[in-house]
Structures are given as structure tokens and as C-alpha cells.
Design a binder for these strands. Sequence first.
DNA 1: TAGGTTATTGACCATGCAGTCAGACACGGC
DNA 2: GCCGTGTCTGACTGCATGGTCAATAACCTA
Lengths: 203, 203
Amino acid sequence: MQSDTAKEGGTFIERARRAQIVAAASETIAAEGFARASLTRIAARAQISKGVIFYHFGSKDELVRAVVVETYTGAGTEIAKAVEAAPDHGARLAAYIRGNLVFLADHRTEVQVLNEIFTSFRGEDGRLAYDESQLESVVAPLEAVLRAGQEAGELRAFDRRVMARTIRAAIDAVTPQLNLQPDLDVGAYADELVDTFTRATCA
Amino acid sequence: MQSDTAKEGGTFIERARRAQIVAAASETIAAEGFARASLTRIAARAQISKGVIFYHFGSKDELVRAVVVETYTGAGTEIAKAVEAAPDHGARLAAYIRGNLVFLADHRTEVQVLNEIFTSFRGEDGRLAYDESQLESVVAPLEAVLRAGQEAGELRAFDRRVMARTIRAAIDAVTPQLNLQPDLDVGAYADELVDTFTRATCA
DNA sequence: TAGGTTATTGACCATGCAGTCAGACACGGC
DNA sequence: GCCGTGTCTGACTGCATGGTCAATAACCTA
């Protein structure tokens, strides 16, 4: 039997194995892409029998979701901290952008794994398991920053939804470039984006 | 035997079948996603035997590439026309953005198919067949527009590469939204983007 | 209408997949 | 030493996949 949220459930071995399998799955996805990350390959990387995965996780679906939770936890708070430390709303937007790019640069593998899962992981019905509608939670905090800035009169009037999507898209576009060109100057890239969106949003 | 570029090669039946199979493949990808678009399903949709696909195309790989070529041809010129009709460089950028969004709205299915292929189609090595490095040709014309604008003094100094990527990302982000919310007001969305990037780029 | 080319079928193959399971191992309490 | 529970293995099933192929149908020309 395995625990649901796994924070404290299960025996010592239970938790250790789950962590090991999740790590192996993450590594396999990063190294070979989601499409090639079969349970056979994941088990091989972890140097365990394939059956043990089914002992600790009910299905491949459950494993993948565990990888997402594991990888996602902590990312949001890290960026939120940077944003909240900023004084005015213009600076908050800048902090948001910079916080995101720094996170991308520091956690490229994890971000790549999440990207693989989000764009390839499909349910039985063939639809993406993590589609646009569920990514609402990613855009929402950014929209909140924009709204606050507008209400304070520091940012001009614009469609917050469109602007938030645009900024998110600009940030998300960095990952594949970083993947292709690992020595990309993320700081300079951030400066450009901050400049661009400051001009685009300020009153 | 089948032709390579297929414009005029082969018999009448040859060309008709190829077109039919490409169409069926495109429909299947649009309806069920790339991952589920197996040759069996494609053949079923076209109401032909699976073997006939291998008679006209050497492999699934070749079929998919034919879909890309088929779908891609014409898109570039359509947008280029709109861009070249614009007077000054600021207007050119606006025309580029509007041209792209109009194209997205008018050809959602085709764009969705391309998107499916670009994000899921992998070679034997497990790497994306159409990755970031091969999408250079998409960003290049936009960079040219930006460069011309800067040299004419109409656009401020900025990193053209970053700006081009950002604009492309903003445009590409529309597709999944359109998919999720088919009645999205693309005209208004285009206005917002034009406003945003005009402010961001003008001298 | 005969004969050769072109086009098509459906059965077949090897492979890889997610998932199952009977049995074996480890190990602590009795 | 033995038992029971928790853990693990490796062989197995059933299925879908991309791809092959011999037989055959459709077609065109002579």
C-alpha cells in the first residue's frame, strides 16, 4: 500500500523507493523525452525491476503526476518571494520576469521535464493531461500583479489577460533556447524583457 | 514508385492517393493528437488498407513530413504579402502581427496540426524532428523587419533576437487559447498585441 | 481480348508497451 | 527455527505499433 500525498506516509523504504523512482523517471524524461520514457527504461535507469514501480505506484499515470508534484513544489514560492520583495508595481513586474528567468536558468532540467510532460502527457482520451485550462494557476498571479499596478495608476490600461499571456509566453520561450544554447546570457535576456514590458505596460 | 516533391510526379491516381492520405493524416492528427495518429487510424479514416500508405510513402516519417510541407506551403507568402503592403516599419510590424493572427484564426486546424507535429514528432534518436534550431526560418523574416525599422530610425535599439522571439512567442500563444475558447475575439487580441509591441519597439 | 504494369488488400511479423502475478527474498517477532 | 508481513523479481499477458509481403485486383495498351 502506498500513501497518497507521500509526505510522511509509508515506511522508510517506501518513501526512499518512491523518491528514487520519481527521480529516475524525471531523469529519463529529461534525457530521452517523454515519449521514450517507458516504464522499462525508467526501471532500467533506477536499476530495479519494472514490477516494483507498480508496487509503489498504481500506474504510470500516477508516477508521472508524482513527478509533476515533486518538481512543481517550491517553484511558485521561490518566485513569489522575489516579487513580494519589490517596492512599486513596475518593479514587481520586473521582479516577476527576472525571478522567472533566474529560476529557469537555475533549474533547467526540472523545467525541461515539466515542459515535456505538459506538452506530451495525454490521458486515455488522447487529450493533454495538463492543458491550457489547468495552467490558469500559472497566469493568475501575474494577472494579479498587473491589476494591482493598474489600480495604483502605475500601469496603463490594457487587457490584463492578453498581457499576462504575452509575458508568460515570452518567459516560456526562453526554455527551448536555453536548451539549444546553454551558455545563453540569461541576465541580459532578462534585461531586454524587462525593458520591453516596462515600456509596454507603464502609464 | 513515388515522386519526391510530388508537384507533378506520378500518375493521376498516385497524386490523388497521396493527397487523400495526407489529408487523412492531417485530420487524424487534428482530431486525436499526434500521439494517437497511428497508421492504422489514418488508414481507417481514409478507408483504405494500411499497406497502401507504404506503397505511396516509404514510411510514417515521410508521410508526416509531407503533411508539414503541404500545410506549410502558402502560409509564409500569405503573411509576407500583408507585411510588404505596409508603408513604414512600425506599420510593418503591426501588419506582421495582424497577418499572423488572421492566419491563425482562418486556418486553426492546419496550425493545430503543425503545432502537434512540431511538439510531438520525434526521430529515432528521440529528439524532436522539428526543433527550435530548424524554426530559424520562422524568426528570420521578423528579425529582418525589426532590423529595417531600427536602421530607418523608426524603432529603438533593442536585441532583435530577443524581441523577435518574444513577438513570435506572443503570437504562438494564441493557438492554444483559440483551441480552448473558439469564439475568442482575434481582432481585439491583435489590437492589444500591436499596441503592446508598438510601445515596446518604437523610438 | 491478352499481357504487363500499377495499385491494393489483408494477413502477417517483430518489437515495445503498460500492466499482472506467482513465487522468492529479507527480516523482525515469537 | 519458523512464521508473517513487507518488498522485490522476472517471466508472462494482451495489445498496439510500424512495417512487410505474397496474392490479387484494376487499369492501360497492344
